[in-house]
Computed example of a mutant assay.
Amino acid sequence: MPEPTQTSDQRLVKGARARATIARHAADVASVEGLTGLSLGRLASDLGVSKSGVATLFGTKEKLQLAAVASARDVFIDHVIRPALPEPGGWPRLRALVDNWLAYIEEPVHPGGCFRVASIAEFDSRPGPVRDALKADRDDWFTLLEKEISRARAQGRAPDRDPHALAFQLDALVGAANVGARLGDDTAIHTARTIIDALLAPGPGTTPPTDT
């Protein structure tokens, strides 16, 4: 007979797995129907589990929304950020981040495309914990982009401009490409990539170092 502590540990692991599965599905649903479209009952029905079980894990719709935001953040990190980290800081890593980012919307991980683009548009004027979580995630992403842009500038591989302004432009372009792609514009991602390549071209009078 297993020790009580072992039984408790197994239940915790099982609960964590169930929570992660539900949160990931919630992120997928929200990418199409919005975070406000989430419900405990809908997710329980989709996944073939009891509504009371989902309620036990999340408690409220807001906590479910926050779990969806956190799950989508993990997905973005896994597909966009983590694969770029082995690249040297600055230009190589910045290019990898941008390329991964475009691939993330070209072959969408979530059925509705970029979760962040859809959710921020939905919650940008709705104060509260969900908006705060989305803002914190966006701020972290901008901080990473600005850090690598600053390094790239020092390497002579990015225009001599404010890192925040360039991060803002990159974010706007990829966001527009995501919207265009979801609307069936086959040129959206190519157009965004072409403009981004121009933005990241070496500044006047600089000699780009050879990548190693």
Rank of each mutant, 00 (worst) to 15 (best):
G180M: 08
I81K: 05
P4A: 10
N100A: 03
A20N: 14
T21I: 11
Q6H: 14
P2A: 11
F115L: 02
D132T: 04
P209R: 05
T194V: 13
V49W: 00
G128L: 12
T194F: 10
C114H: 15
E3Y: 15
A27Y: 15
V174I: 15
F76K: 05
A154H: 09
T187A: 15
L57P: 00
L102G: 05
G113S: 12
D185A: 15
H79D: 14
R24Q: 14
S119K: 04
F58Y: 09
Q65W: 02
I196R: 10
D171G: 13
P108C: 03
S31R: 07
L200H: 05
P209M: 00
H110D: 03
D186E: 13
T191A: 14
T207C: 04
S31F: 14
L144G: 13
T21Y: 11
A198E: 14
P88S: 03
A188Q: 09
V98H: 06
A26Y: 02
L40H: 04
D124H: 11
V117M: 12
L85V: 12
L166Y: 06
L170V: 01
G89T: 10
P163T: 10
P163Q: 07
A181M: 07
G184Y: 01
G156W: 13
P209S: 00
A23E: 12
E3K: 15
P86D: 02
A72C: 01
